[in-house]
Design a protein around this nucleic acid. Sequence first.
DNA 1: ACCTGAAGTTAGCCTCTCCTAACTTTTAAG
DNA 2: CTTAAAAGTTAGGAGAGGCTAACTTCAGGT
Lengths: 247, 247
Amino acid sequence: MYIILSFVLLYILHLPMSILNYNRSNNPRLSESQEDYLKEIFKLNEVNTTVSLQDLADRLKVKPASVTGMMKKLKQLGLVTYEPYKEVALTDVGEAIALEVLRHHRLLELYLARHLNYSWDEIHEEAERLEHVISEKFEAAIAELMGHPTHDPHGDPIPTIDLEIPDSPNLTAVTAVKENNHAIIRRVMTQDSDILNMLSRLDLTIHSKITVTGKDNAGIRIRVNENQYLLPHSIARFVWVELASNI
Amino acid sequence: MYIILSFVLLYILHLPMSILNYNRSNNPRLSESQEDYLKEIFKLNEVNTTVSLQDLADRLKVKPASVTGMMKKLKQLGLVTYEPYKEVALTDVGEAIALEVLRHHRLLELYLARHLNYSWDEIHEEAERLEHVISEKFEAAIAELMGHPTHDPHGDPIPTIDLEIPDSPNLTAVTAVKENNHAIIRRVMTQDSDILNMLSRLDLTIHSKITVTGKDNAGIRIRVNENQYLLPHSIARFVWVELASNI
DNA sequence: ACCTGAAGTTAGCCTCTCCTAACTTTTAAG
DNA sequence: CTTAAAAGTTAGGAGAGGCTAACTTCAGGT
Ligand SMILES: [Mn+2]
Ligand SMILES: [Mn+2]
Ligand SMILES: [Mn+2]
Ligand SMILES: [Mn+2]
């Protein structure tokens, strides 16, 4: 009865049927590998216009042949669209699963930082493993405990319980900030422990107020807390800020 | 230098060399399956004099053929002693790993109950998955946070950081308590959700003060908080108590 | 001492995820 | 427009952990 009603509702609302199809608790559970593939496709898709199997292979630290094999399987499961030699994309169901895993990951990162005293550079690796094994109850418990946070310690948005990506402030790469302008660091787009460690030692962390004092081909000069640093472009490109004028 | 000193120390103290050999961080990580096999061998060994492959198969929900195969592998790795058609036992290294996993499991159970509002019957299943993926840092963080607890919510002892089993009070099966004697529930030796759920609804939980008011072949009659219950033997056998006279 | 059922083993097969090596298709530079 | 490098595919195989079915060994009851 409920099922019939749902179909009618979907028809009326013109929603894709697939949204209903996915339910973490009653669907056959995916493997950790499969979850990581879907999550990585989603993340690559946010940055690049198209997702190459080579990128996927690099991110997941497997060989391209393995990616081809997995794409066939995920296509079979209705989680990606894909034809040989063409680009990959998530279906609605595939995207829902990717967002579910991403929500686990980012909630866990924040939880580890806030409640178990993990430092910025330690949270990612632990969350990468835990994200696949925590239950929906665990997810709900830490989300509740933290007051349903919208962003993780890297400034990455945490998908909501309905799997929407919350709005983030309008961000600019710090490399694009003009000289003498003020800004607040809002997102650091790397998981590299060494880089995160260094940035946090310089106090270049989320919510730090900075001033861009100069730019040359060596990098970008930044003032934070009366200290000045020269940040090489290779690192600065990970740092995204909100301009002070927008605040 | 440290290594040489360690060898000398071991020689002097007559400790088994194998204790030093195992180090979770630099040894090739075992699979989740292998960890569960070792843990289950340890737990069976605490109860039975000898560990049968059949019991192991039942507990791990695999077929006996699979157990035989795994025993060969674990023997190869130096974690169990075993000859075809003979009983299995853990080596010192195998036992150290079993205790490490058991420590994770029981710390997690207590953590879930205390900090994430899990009920008695929900903790085991979640801990069963998490125990294999948390880092030593996670273990240390929750142990610290909880003040290095010695027993989990079922009354099971939590192995210390040095992998010693902490002393438990002298326990008696509630079925062996004489009529009109008082006692305190100290351990409930089942992970069955339904039974745990029922017991906790009757307030027959860890640290509950009870009085045995009668016994017949239907079961054992117990008073707790002015309420009287008839506990069938099939359930009562899981409940272990400390006699009031010992307190 | 024998017999029989329970316990344990073996062989052969499956699925999963990854690999290498050789091949094909696409793409972009000249 | 050609062609070589990059990207992607295919075939074949490894190893982990399970399974079934047929077999062997063991242990207890008569
Ligand atoms: Mn992961
Ligand atoms: Mn993050
Ligand atoms: Mn387990
Ligand atoms: Mn327990």
